[in-house]
C-alpha cells in the first residue's frame, strides 16, 4: 500500500509528495484523524524542504489541529529554528496557544532549545503568557534547570529595559 501524504511529508519524500498532490490540491491541507495537516507533519519532523514546498503550493500555516496544536508549536518543541522563522515570515501568530495553554515559546523552553527561544523572543514572543498550570517561560526554565534558556530570557529582558 502507499504511504499517506502525512507520512510522505514526515519522511521528506518530495518526489512522491508531488505526485500525490497532483491527484488533487484538496490533499494539500487534508487533516489526519487528529487534525494534523501535511505541513504539521513536515514541521514536526524538521523537513524544511517539504515545509517550503507545501507553503509555496499554498498550504495553510495557520491551521490548528483538534487540540489547537499549531505548526509553529510543533517546530518549536523540536527546536527547528529555521522552520520556526520560515513560519513567522508567513505571518503566523508567535503567541498562538493551545488547549493546555502551551505557546511556541513555552514549548521551545520545554525542549531546552536556546536558539529557538532566542528567535521567538526576537520576533515578539510574549514572556508573560503562562501555561494553564501557571508556569511562565522563566518559571519553566528555572523549574527544569535549563540555565542557558534562563540566560537567554534574562538577556532579552535586559535588552527590552535598555531600549525603553
Amino acid at each position: 500500500d502507499t504511504l499517506s501524504i502525512h507520512q510522505l511529508a514526515a519522511q521528506g519524500d518530495l518526489v512522491q509528495l508531488m505526485s500525490h498532490l497532483q491527484q488533487g490540491s484538496s490533499l494539500l491541507n487534508v487533516p489526519d484523524d487528529r487534525g494534523f495537516t501535511p505541513l504539521m507533519w513536515a514541521a514536526a519532523f524538521g523537513e524544511i524542504a517539504v515545509v517550503k514546498f507545501l507553503l509555496q503550493m499554498g498550504a495553510d500555516p495557520h491551521t490548528l489541529a483538534k487540540e489547537r496544536e499549531s505548526t509553529l508549536s510543533l517546530a518549536s518543541i523540536q527546536g527547528y529554528t529555521d522552520i520556526v522563522l520560515l513560519l513567522l515570515d508567513h505571518g503566523v501568530d508567535v503567541n498562538i496557544y493551545d488547549w493546555n495553554g502551551g505557546t511556541p515559546l513555552l514549548y521551545a523552553v520545554h525542549g531546552n532549545h536556546v536558539k529557538c527561544v532566542e528567535a521567538l523572543l526576537a520576533k515578539g514572543a510574549d514572556l508573560t503568557m503562562e501555561a494553564d498550570s501557571g508556569y511562565s517561560p522563566m518559571d519553566l526554565a528555572v523549574a527544569l534547570g535549563f540555565k542557558k534558556v534562563q540566560q537567554a530570557i534574562e538577556n532579552h529582558v535586559l535588552k527590552l529595559l535598555q531600549n525603553n
Partner: peptide
C-alpha cells in the same frame, strides 16, 4: 520494502511532573 511509519506528531503536557505553582 518494509514501510517505516512515523508516529503522529504530538506536544507534551508542559507542566507534567512539575510542582503546582
Amino acid at each position: 520494502s518494509q514501510l517505516s511509519l512515523y508516529t503522529s506528531p504530538s506536544l507534551p503536557n508542559i507542566s507534567l511532573g512539575l510542582p503546582a505553582t
